[in-house]
Design a protein around this nucleic acid. Structure first.
Length: 589
RNA sequence: GGGCUCGUAGCUCAAUUGGUUAGAGCGCCGGACUGUCGAUCCGGAGGUUGCGGGUUCGAGCCCCGUCGAGCUCGCCA
């Protein structure tokens, strides 16, 4: 060991002890005859003092120290005089009077100073990620991530779950996200796919009788990225046999409570609230509601359908809806210009306009208020729960557009008006998702969750009449507007599974080819089973109240899925390609 | 694939309507200094304004293209 103590662990209890510490030079203050170094490691800072009367050579060497140099210093821990205590750092009551200095690695001038407080642009941070990761904030995120994983493993282990590793090199399957492919050298022209999730393997583990499985599993999806999406991410993957939906919900309720307790030290009330998919869409406009604040969507179609405002009226006549939200007390906080910006904002979701009214002296104040008579104005104010000073927004459009536009507007206003505490966590279950959605592009029904999800037994009659009405035995766990877990009761009957493949237009030969192993397994004694997967990255984000997934991943990729540090992906040698029987057909400019 | 924002010194940013030699703070280099902790003081170096083209008497600023980063719609069972 090159050190006897960590920088951040020294306290006044170590007074008079001779210690050796190692770390990075965080800052230096050179007074000529007296040199102060703040030495940093993962655990904190300690001030090291070099006095020529302690050791002239060490003092002389300390004169050359600069930021981010890695050093080893030996000396006696000394209580600081009361007037010299630095309350800003944990070890501020003490310092190390160095009698020896060893420069372990003289650092080049770094492209940025990780602990200066001004954070450089992300491009630079990602290129020099190893320097960026010296920032205590990122170290905190990685440590929390580790703690969370530990809590997850403890929770499941205590309940007889077994963590099983499943293959990274698997089979490409239709449905779902685009696969990352890995060419096979020994099977010319054939490819493995990296897992989008261990979905099929975990079901096969149930057939194998593992009964209770979990895995902290890396998953890969080759789709366009977002602030909360990386091409490779981590799932807490769970599957159980001989259980139904209720058992999964209860098990995961317990897991969430355990995670919150482990990370935050606080208790969360169980069971977690539940809401149907239909209710979420109606009240919040999306299937992942942020329930930390109100401002729920209100339908005012019945009031405006025969009003003098043509936009509202014709919208209703054409099968659309008029819905609105009430930004309490925001009438003076949004200028005409701000509202124009909001109009453009909802335009991104297909809304052709954004009607707004300020509630003023008990009436509506707006360029379009004149189209609504007194009775309608009063009815609107009442329905929206309007009070003087409120700002009402309405979108008149096709139902889906009103949902999407108002859901996003609500989130934006909630954030801008600071309607919630960013540290608060409000998880809830969203249940009764539709099993199928109409895929206009492919002109067929397709599975909303995945094709292994069991239909709600009450809805089987809709297969022939109205497939969009079939509810799935699936469930999402939503927290603060993020989908952070998703699962379902699986099909364990090969006949039903075949029927579903038929229904989504997967020809039986193709189903046999792509999923034959699953259908086969279901024929060999498959227990009823159900499962779920939690997005680990998103949970870490939630616990840190962070909205950027890259800040909770040690080595993340950019939006174009490249690694700025290693410069992956990259071209490879012609020899490698030949071995893989691959020729590149690059796009021509 | 579409929309929007950004790119100026090592870093964070500024630069009036398109107008002289592109500035500041931090950092860096040299010097001074025995109690600092965002040390202080004195001096200094540091720029192909991402790249390419265009408009103009004149471009960091306007236009077109391109590269990169971010946000987002589509996409993500």
């Amino acid at each position: 060991m090159l050190r006897t103590h960590k920088c951040g662990e020294l306290t006044k209890n170590h007074n008079e002890q001779t210690v050796t510490v190692c770390g990075w030079v965080d800052s230096y203050r050179n007074h000529g005859n007296l040199i102060f170094i703040d030495l940093r490691d993962r655990y904190g800072l300690i001030q090291v003092v070099f006095d020529p009367s302690d050791n002239e050579a060490a003092h002389k060497l300390a004169d050359t120290l600069r930021g981010e140099d890695v050093i080893q210093a030996t000396g006696k821990v000394d209580l600081r005089r009361a007037d010299l205590v630095n309350p800003k750092i944990a070890s501020g009551e003490i310092e190390v009077r160095a009698t020896d200095l060893n420069i372990l690695n003289k650092a080049k001038l770094p492209p940025f100073t990780p602990t200066s407080g001004n954070v450089p642009n992300e491009e630079l941070r990602l290129k020099y990620r190893y320097i960026d990761l010296r920032r205590p904030e990122l170290q905190k995120a990685l440590i929390m991530r580790h703690k969370l994983c530990q809590a997850v493993r403890n929770y499941f282990d205590a309940q007889d779950f077994v963590e099983v590793e499943t293959p990274m090199l698997g089979k490409s399957t239709p449905e779902g996200a685009r696969d990352y492919l890995v060419p096979s050298r020994v099977h010319p022209g054939a490819f493995y796919a990296l897992p989008q999730s261990p979905q099929l393997y975990k079901q096969l583990l149930m057939v194998a009788g593992m009964d209770r499985y979990f895995q902290i599993a890396r998953c890969f999806r080759d789709e366009d990225l977002r602030a909360d999406r990386q091409p490779e991410f981590t799932q807490i993957d769970v599957e159980m046999s001989f259980v139904g939906q209720e058992d999964i919900l209860t098990t995961i309720d317990g897991l969430v409570a355990h995670m919150v307790k482990s990370v935050r030290g606080t208790d969360i009330q169980l069971p977690l609230p539940r809401m149907t998919h239909a209710e979420a869409l109606e009240r919040y406009g999306n299937d992942k509601p942020d329930t930390r604040f109100g401002m729920e969507l209100t339908d005012v179609g019945s009031i405006v359908k025969d009003s003098g405002f043509g936009v509202f009226k014709s919208c209703i006549e054409n099968g659309g809806r008029v819905r609105g939200i009430n930004a309490k007390g925001a009438a003076d906080k949004y200028s005409r210009k701000n509202i124009d910006e909001l109009t453009a904002f909802v335009g991104e979701y297909g809304a052709k306009g954004l009607a707004f009214f300020r509630v003023k002296e008990g009436k509506l104040d707006s360029p379009i208020a004149k189209f609504l008579d007194d009775d309608k104005q009063q009815a609107l104010i009442q329905k929206m729960g309007g009070e003087n000073g409120d700002l009402l927004f309405f979108v008149a459009d096709q139902p889906k557009v009103t949902s999407a536009a108002l859901a996003s507007l609500r989130l934006r206003l909630g954030k801008e008006l600071k309607l919630y505490d960013p540290m608060e966590m409000k998880p809830l279950w969203v249940l009764d998702f539709p099993l199928y959605g109409w895929d206009a592009e492919e002109n067929r029904w397709s599975a909303e969750h995945h094709p292994f999800c069991n239909p709600n037994s009450e809805d089987l009659g809709y297969f022939e009449t109205d497939p969009g009405k079939i509810r799935a035995q699936s469930y999402d766990l939503v927290c603060n507007g993020y989908e952070c877990a998703s699962g379902s009761v699986r099909v364990h009957d090969p006949v039903v599974q075949q029927k579903i493949f038929d229904f989504i237009g997967l020809k039986s030969e193709e189903a046999e080819l792509k999923f034959g192993f699953l259908l086969n397994a279901l024929r060999f004694g498959a227990p009823p089973h159900a499962g779920i997967a939690l997005g680990l990255d998103r949970w870490v984000m939630l616990f840190l109240a962070n909205d950027n997934i890259r800040d909770v991943i040690a080595f993340p990729k950019t939006q174009k899925a490249s690694d700025l540090m290693t410069e992956a992906p990259s071209t490879v040698d012609a020899k490698q390609l030949r071995e893989l029987h691959i020729k590149c057909d690059l796009p021509v400019e």
